[in-house]
């Protein structure tokens, strides 16, 4: 099996007449954390949402080029979008627990996928909460509403919810943008552990976060991929002047 499990080929994306991504060519490797950085409006979130075809929900969304995951073109006709989305679990900037209990939130995806056995669900929910270090904090109130958790706990719950789908990839869209440093640290810690089992793509506004956790980092600007490479290289000796300007805080 190849190491390059996501491969995009001249991928462009449009919302109506506006081009949001321009000829993106990049690959994602197995069990790495790929950090994607760039200023607001650079297309990094759009790129992430193109991978699980969430942009399809927006009126006027259109693409050119291809994205291949495990060699399969995900925009090819006949692709099962539901299966694709289960394979690529997504975590959003604002944690969005569904208006249900903690337990139900984690079990939701698994139930959608048709798991009915109560003991199997219990085991799965516990396992996912343990992996995100949330279990100890919530084990006594699994039946209380998920919306009552703190922001950081909600975000870890959203990651746990993704894990219950047994995905191959975890897509994170600025997962720590609304969180305090301690919660952020906890999430980064669990990402480092999750890397052993999953391939992770982390879109972040916080360049330091990419420097801390990403193996490789990509820099997006105005819908273009400016540069991608090993994180140390991007942050120490970037090839492009614009990357250097961005990470040293000269704009963005």
């Amino acid at each position: 099996m190849s190491d390059r499990i996501i491969q995009t080929d001249n991928f462009s994306h449009y919302f109506g007449a506006i081009q949001t991504l321009k000829n993106i060519n990049l690959e994602v490797r197995r069990n790495e954390i790929l950090g994607i950085i760039g200023p607001a409006g650079s297309g990094k979130s759009t790129f992430l949402r193109a991978l699980n075809r969430l942009n399809d929900l927006t009126y006027g969304s259109r693409i050119e080029g291809t994205i291949k995951i495990d060699g399969q073109d995900i925009y090819a006709p006949g692709t099962s979008i539901v299966e694709l989305r289960r394979k690529l679990g997504m975590v959003f900037a604002t944690p969005i627990p569904l208006p249900r209990s903690i337990y139900e939130n984690v079990a939701f995806g698994a139930k959608m996928a048709g798991i009915k056995s109560k003991s199997e669900l219990n085991e799965l929910v516990t396992d996912c909460l343990v992996k995100t270090t949330l279990f100890e904090e919530v084990k006594d109130r699994l039946d209380s509403s998920a919306t009552k958790l703190s922001g950081g706990q909600q975000q870890r719950l959203c990651i746990a919810r993704i894990l219950a789908l047994k995905p191959e990839f975890i897509l994170l869209d600025e997962p720590c943008s609304g969180l305090d440093p301690i919660s952020t640290m906890k999430i980064e810690e669990s990402l480092r552990q999750l890397k052993n089992e999953y391939t992770i793509i982390l879109v972040t506004n916080n360049t330091k976060q990419a420097a801390r956790v990403a193996d490789r980092t990509a820099f997006f600007l105005n819908g273009e991929l400016i540069e991608i490479g090993q994180t140390e290289k991007i942050f120490t000796t970037p090839a492009d002047q614009r990357t250097n300007d961005y990470i040293s805080g000269r704009f963005g």
């Binding site: 299966e83 995806g109 789908l165």
Partner: peptide, 21 residues
């Protein structure tokens, strides 16, 4: 909209999203 996207991104179909969320 975030409820919808959250559920859809979890691999729920539109009908499942409608019914459960």
């Amino acid at each position: 909209r975030s409820y919808r996207e959250g559920s859809i991104a979890l691999g729920a179909t539109k009908w499942q999203t409608t019914k459960m969320v």
